[in-house]
Design a protein around this nucleic acid. Structure first.
Lengths: 224, 224
DNA sequence: GTCTATAACTAGATAGAC
DNA sequence: GTCTATCTAGTTATAGAC
């Protein structure tokens, strides 16, 4: 976790190349599967470099994650403020809030290449990680976001109980993160009608889905 | 993949113990992370047994997956037929179809213990697996399900374009599978209001979410 | 069927030359 | 900063005794 002293020029570049290669490979094949040897080889760097710039494989993973999630969550906060500043409390406002949560993830992970799936994988690892380490990092990054958006949803969905809002926010996360796996799967299963590479298409199909989901009446009738 | 000759009594029991232990560990920590040594140790079996009953670690994974997904998808088909036999084409019918897809997964994975997350992880691996092997297996198990439910959704959602139906079916999968990771995360983030251990609670919060999502009007206005 | 022993290999990490 | 060489410890898989 602790930073090495910054290098003059060449060093930082190597550091970046390692980050890029690791992100790409881990997104494609998973953290445990990809070895540091393959990462450094793909980065055109030496195997020892990863321990020079980072402390361990684990610390490299954290660096990858932080590099991506920080700008995404900053943009989320910025857009949330803008959305909440809108007048009224109707459907448009809700849509703007949903958009504030969804767009930065999709747009920025797109910009960054395949790195977005790493973020998703890391979220998946949250439940697996033995104790503390990654979990603390994740909570630190996500806690303010989760709180602020949950409060916003709660204010905009007065017909729902508190628990229902949390449940739906959680399902929203699921739909969003699952998009990261769509690239290889969805086109073939959809007669090539859906193209996840197209961010606009993904966003404009996801937003009405989520708005409809959030605004739906709360179910209480349990059929036999 | 090819089956060993069936054992008389003791053998099948060992086989099952290995399956159970492997499923539990892989669900908790991931396929690549868990070694055959730990699996056989947890199963009270010998390291060599896994190669005796299965052919390899990979074949063991396939056996785990097939054991779970076959009854789940059979039940899905059964419930889908029943749902489609309902009169009319309204909201109740749609809800029954959604329920037919969602309930077997949640109820049977619950019954089976933590095995449900393995199924989710395997779906995640679909995109990662080098070539063919797991992917073929997955498609074989999921292809009929995907087709039949997509057709049902299409018939029940005439206001949506074909692409929108596929997109929404895909998002539905995301929300459903993400539930498998909820156990550790959601209670703490929801002031303990949501309890993913309670299957009924999960189902009854998920169904209206999904029905609302599927029936929402298709978005076409793209705000500046 | 179940075991021990081991082969054949790969992993992350690091010491030390340059 | 970057490299080679190597250490230690882990892995899957299998041969062969019982």
């Amino acid at each position: 976790m602790k930073r090495r002293k910054r290098a003059n020029g060449r060093g930082d570049e190597t550091r970046m190349r390692i980050l890029d290669a690791a992100e790409r490979l881990i997104a494609a094949e998973g953290y445990a599967t990809v070895s540091l040897r393959r990462i450094t080889q793909a980065a055109g760097a030496n195997i020892a470099a990863v321990n020079y710039y980072f402390e361990s494989k684990h610390a490299l993973l954290e660096a990858i994650f932080v590099r991506r999630i920080v700008p995404i969550n900053a943009e989320r906060m910025r857009l949330l403020e803008a959305a909440l500043a809108l007048p009224g409390a109707g459907r448009e406002k809700l849509e703007a809030v949903v958009r504030a949560f969804v767009e930065p993830h999709l747009r920025l992970t797109r910009e960054f290449g395949p790195g977005g799936t790493v973020v998703m994988q890391l979220l998946g690892r949250l439940s697996t990680d033995p104790e503390g380490k990654i979990e603390k990092l994740l909570l630190k990054q996500y806690d303010p976001i989760w709180r602020r958006f949950a409060a916003a949803f709660r204010a905009l969905l007065p017909h729902l109980g508190k628990a229902a809002v949390y449940w739906r926010f959680y399902y929203l996360l699921g739909a969003l993160y699952y998009l990261s796996s769509a690239r290889q799967w969805l086109p073939r299963r959809s007669e090539r009608l859906c193209n996840p590479e197209n961010v606009e298409e993904a966003i404009e199909s996801l937003i009405p889905f989520l708005v409809g989901a959030l605004t739906a009446p709360e179910g209480n009738a349990k059929p036999a």
